[in-house]
Write a protein that binds this DNA or RNA. Structure first.
Length: 444
RNA sequence: GACCCCUUCGUCUAACGGUUAGGACACAUCCCUUUCACGGAUGCGAUACGAGUUCGAUUCUCGUAGGGGUCGCCA
C-alpha cells in the first residue's frame, strides 16, 4: 500500500498560481501532481490565487488559469468560483488574516523594522532539515543570509510570508511544488515554527526544461496551456504527457487515462531529475488518444477546425463516418481538413499531381467511363457490392483492380491521399460518387 | 561567490548489488497496402569521468566535471 493511504487525516493540497501571465505548462504539471495526490487519497485539491502583486495581475491571466485547469480536467474542491470553508481564496482579500499573523510574529519578538518601514523576519539561524517526499532529507546549515523581508513599507506582505500563512490557515497537509522552491523552503519552515505551526509535508518535483535543456520560458513551444487548446490537442493527451514528465506509471503502455493516473499515482515514485519537453512525443500521444474518439465526441472535438476552414457539417451521422475514416491518419484536430474537405463540398479542387497522372495514361477516360457504367450496376452500395463492381470492370477491361483504385480516389477527392477508396465511396453514396466520376471525366 | 538538487540511448525512462542494461518517442530498413496512416518486424543507440566498498556496482560512498535551481521590499 502506498504510504499516502496509510495516513489517517484527509489530504489537503493546493495549487497557488499568481495571475501574471498565462497558465504555464510547468505550473499545470505542478497542479496536476497535486490534483492526482488529492484524488488518489480522497483528499481536497484547493486553488488559491496569489494576486498580491496588483501591478502585474490581469483578469485575462486569471481566466487563462481557470480555463486551462478545467480544460485539463483538474477540478478544484475549494477556491474561486467554487467556494469553501477556508476562503477567501484570493490573497488580495486576506489582508486582515495576514495582519493578525504578522502581529503574532511581532509579539514573539521575531521581527524588526527597517528605517524606511519595511519589516524583516529574524531567522532562527539554526540548522533546518527538510524531510522531502521526493528528494529525501535535505539539510540546510544555519544560514548566514540577511533576515528576510516579509512586509513592505506600505503594509503589503511578501510571498514567503503570505504563502506560509495561507497554508497554515487553509490547513494544507502537503505542499507539492517545483524544485525551484527547495532552496527557500527552510525559510518557510522557520516561519512555521515562529508562528507555532506544524509545517506540512513538502515534496519538490523536478523542473520542466525546453528541448535545449534550460528552463521552459515564455517563448518556448508549448509553454502555455492555451497553445495546446489552440493547436487542437486533446486535453486527455496533454494530461497524459504531463504525467509522464517526472513520473512513470507502472503500466504496460505509456498511454494512460485520467482514471488510471489517479489509481496509480504515488508521490514517492516522482523522479528526481529535470525532464526536457518533447513536442513530438506529446503529439504522438495525442494521436493515440484521438483514435479512441468516435461519433459525436469526434465531431465535437474536430468541428471548430472544420468550421474555421469553411467546411459545414450537416448530417452528423455522415460527418462521423467521414471523420472516422481518416482519424488514424492524422494526429491533431487541426489536421483533418485536408483529409476530409471533399466529403463536405462538391467544388473541391483537383490537384495538379492528379491531373498529371491521369493525362499520363491514355486509358484514363475509357477506364473512368467503364467504372461509371460498372458502379451504376452495383448490386449493393456497400464495401462488398462496390468491390464486386470494380472487380468486374477490371476483368472486362483486362486491368488489375489495383489500377482502377487510384482513378476512383482521384474522382472522389481530387487528391492522392485519403481513406480506403471503397470506404470513401460508400460514405459518399452512389449518386455523388457517379457525379464525381462524371465531373473528372469532363476535365480530361 | 555561497548553498541546494540532479546525471542510463538524441529525448522520456526501466533496473530498488548479479539482466546479452529493457521499453517508448524519433530516425533507418523491410512487411502489410490503390494513397496516407495504423499495425508488425529489424536496425541504430546509453550507465559523464575517476577512485573506493564488494566475489560482483547503473545501483552504495567519496571526489571531479557538467546541467539545473536558490540567495528580491517578484511570485
Amino acid at each position: 500500500m502506498p504510504w499516502c493511504l496509510s495516513m489517517s487525516s484527509p489530504f489537503r493540497v493546493r495549487f497557488a498560481p499568481s495571475p501574471t501571465g498565462y497558465l504555464h505548462v510547468g505550473g499545470a504539471r505542478t497542479a496536476l501532481f497535486n490534483w492526482l495526490l488529492a484524488r488518489r487519497t480522497g483528499g481536497k485539491f484547493i486553488l488559491r490565487i496569489e494576486d498580491t502583486d496588483q501591478a502585474r495581475n490581469t483578469p485575462e491571466a486569471m481566466k487563462a488559469i481557470f480555463d486551462g485547469l478545467r480544460w485539463l480536467g483538474l477540478d478544484w474542491d475549494e477556491g474561486p468560483e467554487v467556494g469553501g470553508d477556508h476562503g477567501p481564496y484570493f490573497q488580495s482579500q486576506r489582508q486582515s488574516i495576514y495582519d493578525a499573523y504578522f502581529q503574532k510574529l511581532v509579539e514573539a519578538g521575531r521581527t524588526y523594522t527597517e528605517e524606511n518601514g519595511a519589516v524583516r523576519f529574524k531567522f532562527s539561524r539554526q540548522p533546518i532539515l527538510i524531510p522531502d517526499l521526493v528528494c529525501g532529507d535535505v539539510q540546510f546549515a544555519a544560514t548566514e543570509e540577511p533576515d528576510m523581508t516579509i512586509r513592505r513599507p506600505d503594509g503589503s506582505y511578501i510571498f514567503h510570508f503570505v504563502n506560509v500563512v495561507d497554508d497554515i490557515e487553509m490547513r494544507m497537509t502537503h505542499v507539492i511544488r517545483g524544485e525551484d522552491h527547495l532552496s527557500n523552503t527552510w525559510k518557510h519552515i522557520d516561519l512555521y515554527h515562529a508562528l507555532g505551526a506544524e509545517p506540512p509535508r513538502f515534496g519538490h518535483i523536478p523542473l520542466l526544461l525546453n528541448p535545449s535543456g534550460s528552463k521552459m520560458s515564455k517563448r518556448d513551444e508549448g509553454a502555455s496551456i492555451e497553445s495546446y487548446i489552440q493547436a487542437g490537442f486533446l486535453p486527455q493527451a496533454v494530461f497524459n504527457y504531463l504525467c509522464l514528465l517526472g513520473w512513470t506509471p507502472k503500466t504496460e503502455t505509456e498511454k494512460i487515462t485520467q482514471e488510471q493516473a489517479v489509481a496509480l499515482f504515488d508521490v514517492s515514485d516522482i523522479h528526481h531529475s529535470n525532464a526536457r519537453f518533447d513536442m513530438t512525443k506529446c503529439t504522438w500521444l495525442n494521436q493515440q488518444h484521438l483514435r479512441d474518439l468516435s461519433g459525436a465526441a469526434l465531431i465535437a472535438h474536430v468541428r471548430p477546425w472544420l468550421e474555421k476552414d469553411g467546411l459545414i457539417i450537416g448530417d452528423e451521422g455522415y460527418a462521423a463516418l467521414a471523420l472516422e475514416s481518416v482519424k488514424e491518419k492524422v494526429s491533431m484536430a487541426s489536421e483533418f481538413t485536408p483529409w476530409v474537405h471533399y466529403f463536405f463540398r462538391e467544388d473541391f479542387p483537383i490537384e495538379d499531381e492528379v491531373m498529371a497522372k491521369l493525362k499520363a495514361n491514355a486509358q484514363s477516360p475509357a477506364l473512368l467511363a467503364a467504372l461509371s457504367a460498372g458502379l451504376k450496376q452495383a448490386a449493393s452500395w456497400d464495401e462488398a457490392g462496390i468491390t464486386a463492381a470494380v472487380t468486374d470492370v477490371a476483368t472486362e477491361q483486362k486491368v488489375k483492380a489495383g489500377a482502377l483504385m487510384p482513378l476512383l480516389r482521384f474522382s472522389m477527392s481530387g487528391q492522392t491521399r485519403g481513406p480506403d477508396v471503397k470506404i470513401m465511396i460508400g460514405i459518399l453514396g452512389k449518386e455523388r460518387a457517379l457525379a464525381r466520376i462524371e465531373r473528372l471525366s469532363n476535365l480530361l
